[in-house]
Design a protein around this nucleic acid. Structure first.
Lengths: 211, 211
DNA sequence: GTCTATAGTAGGATAGAC
DNA sequence: GTCTATCCTACTATAGAC
């Protein structure tokens, strides 16, 4: 395999096992089984390597799950898929990489740009799925797919960091999301009469909030 | 003011402005206007200083908001309070400190212990509020306050990291949460007939999932 | 408790042989 | 493209004067 990819995998390994604070040219090179100087030959500097790792692996993982997004037909299914993706990616630490890079991007710079791009790959996928799923739901006119997509993406990333520190608590949190999914399911499967009633309630609530 | 506190404030300042990766004995000492050697005199090592900063400031901030939690009377109000706290703490970067420390805790060690403790301070507050608020709601028997508390805490932390990189997206996400709050409000204010119907729906849905 | 000075280490990055 | 060797900087941590 070529060296560029080995170095990217090295970043992945270090972040997965020790977090962003442990990433250094030396630690990455060691994990990649490559010479330290090659990082600078191939990427110019360490930050650029991390940035490309973040964007590239996110691109790959989102693409891998894209067919599944297309199958989603309800809010409940979307939440279930989120949970499934979360668990599937846990072993390889791909979400952890994004979360850790996001944390490292606090100071702006190249990493901020890279994480923004990577986050966009997830949110656009979720957003388009939400738009498709919500059309026809009683919730359509009261929800903002763009905002919801960003909130759920941010939420799953927070959860990824959380469970690294408190695995049991992370499980509990995921369980609570399953309950929310069930609730969403029920709301979507209401009969036309109940749907109309709910819609009226939401509308009047929205109106009273506007005043 | 005494030096220990100045150093803690120094950590706060560095994390707020540059993130956990920029934290070093030198950068913290500079931000605190103190001598670098004092970190080791007062805390033994840098990690311990970060850990104590995380726990102490979280304790203070949670205590400051405790009266507000006690006033909460609905899910909608709780979500609104979450948003309010999130915005209030943004300027001082107190949530960012927890989020960044959490990211730095990936490798275990003292930081993991500290963040676990700090997270617990938030989740116990949210959890007890949830238990109080949910009693009497049609959702009571279908929600787990412990899991929900951890999910929301993790969610807000994820959002804190997110908005540091994409401020506009963060605003959108917060807006979506306000919509969820409105939805929760409506569900709670349903009449007894509708409540009974919803409960039955949820129950049968739970049953069909169990098979 | 606070300072200066410094030891010892790990880090980013480059030069130049192959 | 890859390696060795190395420069220089920044880091953690300690010793010892005040």
């Amino acid at each position: 395999m070529n060296t560029k990819q080995r170095l990217i995998d090295g970043v992945l390994a270090v972040i997965r096992e020790q977090g962003i604070t442990a990433v250094s040219a030396r630690s990455v090179a060691a994990a990649a089984g490559a010479n330290q100087a090659l990082i600078f030959y191939h990427f110019g500097n360490l930050e650029e390597l991390i940035a490309q790792t973040c964007v590239q692996t996110t691109e790959v993982r989102v693409a891998a799950h894209r067919p599944r997004f297309a199958e989603v037909r309800s809010l409940a299914e979307l939440l279930a898929l989120g949970r499934e993706i979360h668990e599937a990616e846990r072993a390889e630490g791909n979400l952890a990489v994004l979360a850790q890079t996001l944390a490292g991007a606090q100071g702006g710079g190249r990493l901020a740009e890279a994480t923004r791009e990577a986050l966009g790959k997830w949110t656009t996928e979720v957003e388009s799925t939400l738009m498709r799923v919500l059309s026809g739901s009683p919730l359509t006119e009261f929800t903002d797919p763009a905002g919801l997509a960003r909130a759920t993406s941010a939420g799953f990333l927070g959860l990824t960091l959380f469970e690294a520190v408190d695995a049991e608590g992370g499980e509990q949190a995921l369980g609570a999301l399953a309950q929310l999914a069930a609730l969403a399911d029920v709301l979507e499967s209401l009969g036309p009469v109940a749907t109309k009633a709910l819609r009226a309630k939401l509308r009047s609530a929205a109106k009273s909030r506007a005043t």
